[in-house]
Simulated assay, not measured.
Amino acid sequence: MTTQPTSPSPKGAALALILVGAAVATAAFVTMLVTGERSVATGTASLGGVALQIAGWRAARRRNGGAA
């Protein structure tokens, strides 16, 4: 039995988490720059986007058996 080589690229749900997280974090950051408003809501949205990205990368790493 041969094993399939694992791809380090995220796929499926992990990729979706990473992309959505990047979009949320970028939108929150741009909103803070444009409006000059550093409110709790935009800061929370930015951190939430980063958290989604981290969750996506962790899921991709688990899928690949821990390979970075």
Rank of each mutant, 00 (worst) to 15 (best):
A55L: 12
A25W: 10
K11N: 07
I54L: 09
K11P: 01
L33P: 00
R38T: 14
A16P: 00
M1L: 12
I18N: 01
V40I: 14
P5F: 15
L47K: 09
G66L: 03
A16G: 01
L17K: 10
E37N: 13
V34D: 02
T2E: 08
G12I: 05
A41L: 12
P5H: 10
L47Y: 11
A28V: 08
T42F: 13
V40W: 14
T44V: 08
L15Q: 06
V50Y: 11
V24A: 05
L47H: 10
V34K: 11
P8M: 01
L19R: 14
L19S: 09
I18P: 00
Q53W: 07
G65K: 07
A41G: 14
G12R: 14
K11D: 03
T31S: 11
R63K: 06
G66W: 03
G12A: 08
N64C: 01
A28Q: 07
I18Q: 02
I18L: 00
G56F: 10
L19T: 10
R63W: 14
S7K: 06
P10G: 04
Q53F: 06
T35P: 00
A28M: 09
A67L: 13
G36K: 03
A27P: 02
K11T: 12
V40L: 15
G21I: 05
Q4A: 13
T42I: 12
R63Y: 07
S39E: 09
G56Q: 06
A13K: 13
R38L: 12
L19H: 04
T26E: 04
G21W: 01
A22T: 09
R62W: 11
S9H: 11
S9Y: 11
N64W: 05
F29W: 12
G21D: 00
A22D: 04
L47N: 06
T6Q: 15
W57L: 08
A59S: 07
T42M: 12
S7Y: 05
A59R: 14
A28H: 05
A23L: 06
A55H: 04
L47W: 15
A23C: 04
V24H: 04
P8W: 01
L47A: 07
M1S: 06
G65E: 01
R61H: 02
A23F: 15
L19V: 07
A25Q: 05
G21E: 00
G21F: 07
G49H: 04
P8T: 03
A51I: 12
L33D: 01
S7L: 13
A51W: 14
R62L: 11
S7E: 05
V50W: 12
A23P: 00
V30M: 11
A67F: 09
A45F: 10
G65W: 09
T2N: 04
A59Y: 01
G65H: 06
G48K: 11
I54K: 08
A22R: 03
T2S: 11
T3Y: 13
A55K: 04
I18H: 00
A22P: 00
S7P: 00
A14R: 01
R62Y: 04
Q53S: 02
S9F: 15
V20G: 03
G48A: 15
R63D: 04
R58Y: 12
A55E: 07
R38S: 15
S39P: 06
R38D: 08
A22F: 15
V20L: 03
A41S: 13
T6F: 07
A45W: 11
G48F: 11
T2P: 02
A68G: 02
A55P: 00
A55G: 03
A67Q: 13
M32F: 03
T42Q: 15
T31Q: 05
A68W: 15
W57H: 07
N64K: 02
